[in-house]
Amino acid sequence: MTVAWTPHRFTGGLLALDTANTVVLRGDPRRTFDRFEDPLEIARFADAASGFRAAELGGRQLAVTSPTAIAPVVLSIREATDRLFRGAVSKGAVTTADLPQFLTACAGGLADSRTEIGAPGKPFGDPATPIAFEAALAVSALSLLREDTVARLRICPNCTWLFIDRSRNASRLWCDMAVCGNRRKASRHYHRHRMAADEVKDA
């Protein structure tokens, strides 16, 4: 099934978190599904991410030469990132036992890369040329290890996606207020009215 890569799919705050969130409802075995089940969606995701993550990427386009070929590397980085940083949210710190697998996965994404990153104004290298999606994904994932970033990681209570809380007072609750916040409010409203109706019926 073709995915509509809308702005809501990019509410994680960084490319690595948006990628981790391509597995929907991870904690619910009955309803969970993987938006990268079809490797072709990796290319479509990367194309959309080039626009939605332009600020993070310094304007550099993401390139996918063969979705099928890079899928194992991408999925490895995705799963290691989710495991490490989902744990960091619950514990308030990164667990060193999960670091080797995470670093190995990121190394796989960078193995064939021949680019330079981190220059002033060019966080992901020269914006005039594309960067391989798996390499950019690894760089984005590694950037999450910053102490100030870990402290602002959150899990959305509605959809369980990972996101960075960049609000001034670090009080953001939802990954996307317009979607998850409104859904939760609507659910609470429905249950309040249902309970009120039941009380009237039973009176």
Results as ranks from 00 to 15, higher is better:
Ala97Gln: 08
Gly118Lys: 03
His193Thr: 12
Phe33Gly: 10
Ala80Arg: 01
Asn158His: 15
Cys175Asn: 07
Ala138Thr: 07
Thr32His: 14
Pro100Val: 03
Ala48Ile: 05
Met177Asn: 15
Thr96His: 12
Phe85Ser: 01
Ser171Leu: 15
Arg172Val: 09
Thr22Leu: 14
Arg26Trp: 11
Asn158Ser: 14
Cys156Tyr: 10
Arg53Ala: 05
Lys122Glu: 14
Gly118Met: 10
Leu144His: 01
Leu25Ser: 14
Ala16Asp: 04
Val94Phe: 07
Ser140Arg: 00
Ser171Lys: 15
Ser90Phe: 12
Ser167Phe: 11
Glu147His: 06
Leu103Asn: 13
Gly59Ser: 08
Thr65Phe: 10
Gly118Ser: 10
Lys185Gln: 14
Ala141Ser: 10
Thr19Asp: 08
Arg53Asp: 03
Ala111Gln: 11
Asn158Phe: 05
Leu25Ala: 13
Gln101Cys: 10
Asp202Cys: 12
Phe85Leu: 04
Gly118Cys: 01
Arg86Gly: 08
Glu41Lys: 04
Arg114Ile: 12
Ala49Gly: 06
Ala54Asp: 13
Met177Ala: 14
Cys175Tyr: 05
Val200Ile: 15
Thr95Lys: 08
Arg154Met: 09
Arg53Met: 06
Asp165Phe: 07
Val24Cys: 07
Ala105Gly: 02
Val200Leu: 15
Leu145Glu: 09
Ala132Met: 01
Asp98Ser: 01
Val94Lys: 02
Pro29Leu: 04
Thr65Pro: 00
Ala151Trp: 00
Thr32Gly: 13
Arg35Tyr: 10
Val150Met: 03
Arg35Lys: 12
Lys201Met: 13
Phe163Trp: 05
Leu15Gly: 04
Asp126Val: 10
Ala136Gly: 11
Ala80Cys: 01
Ala132Asp: 13
Leu99Tyr: 07
Thr19Glu: 08
Val139Glu: 04
Arg194Lys: 07
Ala141Asp: 08
Gln61Ala: 15
Leu145Asn: 12
Glu56Tyr: 09
Asp28Thr: 05
Ala111Leu: 15
His191Phe: 09
Thr32Ala: 14
Pro7Val: 07
Val73Met: 00
Ala135Ser: 14
Phe133Arg: 00
Asp18Ser: 12
Val3Cys: 08
Asn182Trp: 07
Asp34Tyr: 13
Phe36Ala: 12
Val73His: 02
Arg78Asp: 09
Ala136Ser: 01
Val73Asp: 00
Gly125Met: 13
Pro157Thr: 05
Ile155Thr: 11
Asp176Leu: 06
Leu84Asn: 03
Leu173Met: 14
Thr22Cys: 12
Pro29Arg: 00
Ile70Glu: 14
Thr22Val: 13
Asn169Phe: 13
Ala178Thr: 14
Arg44Pro: 00
Leu110Gly: 06
Arg26Glu: 12
Ala138Phe: 05
Ser143Ala: 15
Gly108Lys: 00
Leu17Cys: 03
Thr22Pro: 02
Ala93Trp: 07
Leu57Phe: 02
Gly109Lys: 01
Ala88Leu: 03
Ala48His: 04
Leu40Cys: 09
Ala178Met: 13
Thr68Met: 07
Asp148Asn: 11
Ala4Ser: 10
Phe133Asn: 02
Phe45Asp: 02
Leu153Gly: 01
Val89Glu: 02
Gly181Leu: 05
Ile155Trp: 05
Arg168Leu: 14
Asp198Trp: 10
Glu199Lys: 15
Val73Tyr: 02
His8Lys: 10
Pro72Arg: 09
Thr2Gly: 06
Arg83Ala: 15
Cys175Phe: 06
